[in-house]
Amino acid sequence: DVLWEKFLPADYQEIISGALHLLPSAALSEKELYYRLSDDPLLIDGGSKSFQLEKSSGKKCIMLGAKELAISWGDGKTPWYWDWPRCPGSRFAQVAELHGVWWLEIHGKMEIQLLSPNTFYVAHFVFKLRDDAYGFDDYEPMKAKVEVFGRADGDTNACSKERLIYLG
């Protein structure tokens, strides 16, 4: 257990105590806890985010649920643009379902302190495309960018340049 505890993030108890569904951590050994947290994402922050460990490294992986994102015209007032159904295949209670918009813009924001220090991270956009989806083919890429704000050393090069992504 002493060895396995070293593989867990320093603040793992704080994270577990904030889980949406109580994790019986006291009944688990540190090894069991490590496997539980790497095999099965833990919903945190009222269920708006999920927390998981990368099994090979013990590094933190955070996923923001759609409700945690800022989606243009996705505030629920215009369900003919965006709808908020329940999705049994999602770890989150609700997903954002796009019906059609003329301007697609999504922002996500999180505290970098939630992540493992001194670690190289990749940000992914996770989605499903229906068979009849359109507007996402090779001729219609989207712009994507990851930025890090407010670094103590003022290094604004800590983020990647804008790139084109192809959902289709």
Binding site: T119, F120, Y121, V122, A123, A144, A158, I165
Partner: peptide, 21 residues
């Protein structure tokens, strides 16, 4: 950057990277 299969019908695409130093 192209989307790829993630499992169970989900797709993922790399939006960018950063170093949490």
């Amino acid at each position: 950057y192209f989307a790829r299969e993630r499992g169970n019908g989900w797709m993922e695409v790399e939006m960018g990277h950063f170093y949490n130093g």
